[in-house]
């Protein structure tokens, strides 16, 4: 019994870490830029492809397996920098005045385009970059073999959460961002370079999305359509937690992760809609999500 509870909790936290890493970038971008970025799913897919490609290449060239960890981070940084800056500068920048729904749709268009570019660049054959997962092996916890790699995913989620919290509350940049979130026009008038803040936040969001994909890549098959499900899933998490809130994304991930694990273990037939049932339930009780940041109402 105890073993099973432990297993459910670990499975839940494992899935929660995955959810948190893929949704934290989305919530940051929404919090600052007020954009519901559907193309986040494309960043996720690009990160996964870039990492998987690099890892398989490195493996063929005979590099040791642990090099994969460096490649994962390198891939996410490069993907985030390149795609993030291109998209923010060339497209989103010209749209901030538009309706938020229009921007969301524009990012949907971007998502479709980026998805197909993946097909052109990487082809349709799946990539397997299992080396980093294989090299870490497994341990027995609660009578069940667990892979160490998933446990490092948990550690990564903690690092990302703490890092975001520290960057936003303890650094000068974090304070600037808080000001920009509160009132864009006034911060501009005060001499804050809002445009630079937007660019940097968007790039960071893109990097986090790519990191999610890159870190997940070794555990799975990286194939076309990799980013599609992640969009809706991360939306759900972010909405549950309150859009734009990092603690919200954390709590949202843990809630969904653990409830899903309970469903898989006890009521497998409910697995498919547990995420959305939680989302509907939370929204009915707390319309703005669990941790919605305060918003000024315009009269």
């Amino acid at each position: 019994m105890l073993a099973q509870v432990l297993t459910i909790i670990l499975d839940g936290l494992n899935y929660a870490s995955f959810l948190f890493i893929v949704s934290v970038g989305l919530t940051i971008v929404f919090g600052v830029l007020k954009i519901l970025n559907v193309a986040h799913g494309a960043f996720y897919a690009w990160g996964a492809y870039a990492a998987a490609y690099a890892i398989t290449q490195a493996s063929e060239l005979g590099y040791p397996d642990w090099i994969g960890f460096l490649l994962i981070f390198a891939a996410s940084i490069i993907v985030g920098l390149v795609l993030g800056s291109i998209i923010e500068r060339l497209i989103l920048r010209k749209m901030y005045a538009q309706d938020e729904v229009l921007i969301a749709l524009a990012t949907f268009g971007l998502f479709l385009v980026l998805e197909d570019i993946i097909l052109v660049v990487f082809g349709v054959d799946p990539y397997f970059a299992y080396q980093p997962m294989a090299v870490l092996g497994n341990v027995v916890i609660g009578g069940v073999f667990r892979d160490v790699y998933s446990l490092t995913l948990f550690a990564l989620a903690v690092v990302v959460a703490v890092g975001c919290w520290w960057a936003l509350t303890k650094t000068k940049w974090g304070k600037l961002i808080a000001v920009v979130i509160y009132d864009r026009e006034i911060s501009q008038a005060m001499g804050i370079n809002v445009s630079a803040v937007y660019l940097i936040v968007f790039i960071v969001g893109a990097m986090l999305g790519a990191l999610g994909g890159a870190y997940v890549a070794p555990t799975t098959s990286v194939a076309p359509g990799f980013g599609i499900d992640v969009i809706v899933l991360s939306f759900a998490v972010v909405v549950i937690g309150g859009m734009g809130s990092i603690p919200g994304a954390l709590i949202g991930s843990v809630m969904v992760g653990v409830l899903r694990a309970i469903a898989v273990h006890q009521f497998p037939e409910l697995e498919l809609f547990v995420v959305f049932a939680v989302m509907a339930g939370v929204l009915i009780i707390r319309p703005e999500g669990l941790f919605a940041p305060p918003k000024a109402r315009t009269i």
Binding site: A3, Q4, T7, I8, L10, D11, G12, N14, Y15, F18, G143, V144, F145, R146, S150, V216, T219, T220, S221, G225, F226, I228, D229, R260, A261, V264, H265, P268
Partner: peptide, 14 residues
Amino acid sequence: FSGQYSAEISTMLL
């Protein structure tokens, strides 16, 4: 196409 089977694998192992 969910691609993540950690919890399912645990359940079946138990």
